[in-house]
Simulated assay, not measured.
Amino acid sequence: MKPNEKILAYLQANLNKKIADGNPNPISTWLDGTLIKASAGSITAEFTVREDQCNHAQVLHGGIITTILDEIMGMTLITVEIEHLYVTINLHVDFLFGAKAGEKVTAVSEVYRVGKKIANVEAKLYNAEGKLLAKSTSNLAATSIPMKF
């Protein structure tokens, strides 16, 4: 079984569980998201906005939105067949609407292209009513670190 197939099987066996469970990235623990769906090239996760994630205007801080989107895009990339781990080389985020503490937000990602050195991924963040709060695209570069699972 290929590493991405093992990862996908693991993710699918852990739907509706905290992403932090078994995830080596400490930011995943802090974000405290729940995995909702996982397929090759796409992940859906849900997060509850906490007060410590809000800015002075009492809405979800743009840096936290960016972190959620970046984390979900990187996580999605390992669900496709890649030989090495990738790192973000650029990230563009459009902030459209806010979310307050206590609200649930859902991040949905999709891998658009994986080349030999560069991958292109997109993620969107929605509120519970399906309103688009933010959208992001990122290019990620292959590292020399082999993909393992």
Rank of each mutant, 00 (worst) to 15 (best):
I68N: 08
I68G: 02
L69A: 06
D70P: 04
D70Q: 06
D70V: 01
D70H: 05
E71G: 00
E71N: 12
I72H: 08
I72A: 12
M73L: 07
G74R: 08
G74M: 11
G74Y: 04
M75G: 14
M75I: 01
T76H: 10
T76C: 14
T76N: 10
T76W: 10
L77V: 01
I78D: 03
T79R: 05
V80P: 04
V80R: 09
V80C: 13
V80K: 11
E81I: 00
E81A: 14
I82H: 09
I82K: 10
H84T: 14
H84S: 08
L85E: 09
Y86D: 07
Y86N: 08
Y86L: 05
Y86Q: 05
V87P: 05
V87T: 14
T88M: 04
I89W: 00
I89T: 14
I89D: 03
N90F: 01
N90Y: 05
L91R: 03
H92K: 12
V93M: 03
V93S: 05
D94F: 00
F95D: 11
F95I: 10
F95T: 10
L96W: 07
L96Y: 03
L96T: 03
F97M: 09
G98T: 11
G98S: 11
G98I: 11
A99Q: 07
K100S: 13
K100H: 08
A101F: 02
A101K: 12
G102V: 05
G102A: 06
G102R: 11
E103R: 02
K104D: 07
V105L: 02
V105D: 09
A107C: 06
S109F: 01
S109D: 12
E110N: 12
E110M: 05
E110F: 00
E110I: 08
Y112E: 14
R113K: 15
R113N: 15
R113T: 08
R113P: 00
R113H: 15
V114P: 07
V114K: 14
G115E: 09
G115S: 09
G115A: 07
K116N: 14
K116A: 14
K116C: 00
K117W: 00
K117D: 10
I118N: 09
I118V: 14
I118A: 09
I118C: 06
A119M: 06
N120I: 11
V121E: 04
V121P: 09
V121A: 08
V121K: 02
E122I: 03
E122G: 10
K124S: 12
K124D: 13
K124Y: 03
L125G: 05
L125W: 00
L125K: 00
Y126F: 15
N127T: 03
N127A: 06
N127F: 06
N127G: 02
N127M: 00
A128L: 01
A128E: 15
